[in-house]
């Protein structure tokens, strides 16, 4: 069953350049898709479209039956996004940032949600510190908390390990494993096979705007994935 997220025949063109060429796939609730691809493969564009920040040239996306173009507000309520940009205000404290974002989603008790999430990402002792004073790892942890304020059913992660040191990356991996255990559907976009494979239940390869490979994680070992990746990445120029 792949009825939680449906992406159908998605195309995106930027002034004649085709970033996505008919991407189609589906995910079931609780799926954890790791999407690999070289730079320029269209990974961030795909995530941008699913996250509603980029408009598709054509194609259709639905989450739990909510269509992206017909019901954008309902669609957005299902989403959480973590990217290599924190989307956090440096001049505000960690608590203020989370309360602000939680309030935008009209939660009943934004402060309670913010405090709970700060405990989850182990930043509660620093709740009154300004984000501008945080390290890259702390920002990324707070960014995870920000993405979870609306308890999203679909979490999108765009190169979340970018710029993280080993400790911060290990903590993020731990948090992603926890998300997986909570039956959230997750899409992680990365070009790093090691990070991407850790929690995945499905793996995909995007090359030259096409989804050229998609398989359940338990049917793919690292060697096969590497071989597929190299085959398609090297074939990019001909695609």
């Amino acid at each position: 069953m792949s009825d939680f997220l449906t992406v159908k025949n998605l195309f995106k063109e930027y002034e004649g350049y085709r970033a996505l060429r008919g991407v189609t796939f589906g995910l079931a609730k609780g799926d954890f898709l790791s999407l690999f691809g070289p730079n320029g493969a269209g990974k961030s564009t795909l995530l941008g479209i699913i996250s509603t920040l980029v408009s598709p040239t054509s194609g259709q996306i639905e989450i739990k039956g909510f269509d992206l173009t017909e019901e954008p507000e309902q669609f957005k309520k299902q989403l959480g996004v973590i990217s290599h940009h924190s989307l956090l205000y440096d001049h505000m404290t960690a608590l203020e940032n989370l309360v602000f974002y939680a309030s935008l989603y009209k939660l009943k008790d934004p402060e309670k949600t913010a405090v709970e999430l700060l405990r989850v990402v182990e930043l509660y002792p620093r709740r009154h510190s300004r984000v501008g004073q945080f390290s890259r790892g702390m920002r990324q942890r707070l960014s995870v908390a920000r993405a979870l304020v609306n308890d999203p059913s679909l979490l999108l992660l765009d190169e979340p390990y970018s710029g993280l040191d080993q400790d911060a990356a290990a903590m993020l991996t731990e948090q992603l494993a926890e998300l997986k255990s909570k039956e959230r559907t997750v899409i992680v976009v990365t070009h790093n096979l090691d990070h991407g494979l850790n929690s995945a239940t499905k793996v995909g390869i995007l090359a030259a705007g096409r989804l050229v490979f998609m398989e359940a994680r338990n049917r793919v070992d690292r060697a096969l994935l590497e071989a597929e990746y190299l085959r398609h990445v090297q074939g990019d120029g001909e695609a």
């Binding site: 989307l87 974002y101 935008l104 989603y105 920000r146």
Partner: peptide, 8 residues
């Protein structure tokens, strides 16, 4: 992006 991702 954070504002645009929210339902505002």
């Amino acid at each position: 992006d954070g504002l645009l991702l929210s339902p505002v």
